[in-house]
Amino acid sequence: MSEILEFGKVDLGYEIPEQSRHITQEKINKNAEGSLDFNPIHIDPAWAKKVNLLGKGTTIAHGIMTGAFMGKIVTDWAYPRGAFLQMLDVKFVHPVRPGDDITARGKVTEKHPRPGDESFVVLELWCENQAGVKVGVGQAAVRIPV
């Protein structure tokens, strides 16, 4: 367990550690197995090429694959430090395709003091691809009991 988070010591503007990953068709297929989402737009390159749904004729990664990644940087920060993920709200604003490198980042933008152990912070989240284009944006709320 890392050092326990204390609500009073979390500063506005604090940036949680960012994380990056490389996206491949194999990883998307594995995500389909894990998430039970076998939509052909994710796992069938030939069909994706034929229908050319988003203009480049490729499959796209599951939106929730990006969303789970954005959530992961929050839980990797909060869980080992005794805090809880209360809310995750993500919008997928640009497709993630095989071959992309994406980086997720987050910053504390709000502090909500509450009685007892109910205080929480809100983080702004965003995820960019290798070209610096945002692929996901959103927010997370983290309850910090101490």
Partner: peptide
């Protein structure tokens, strides 16, 4: 995805995910 029936719009080929919100 396991819980909804296979003919649900959730499983429509080519459906695109614009965003989701979870309150836990």
């Amino acid at each position: 995805f396991a819980a909804v029936p296979p003919d649900s719009w959730v499983k429509m080929p080519g459906a695109i995910n614009p965003g989701q919100r979870w309150e836990f």
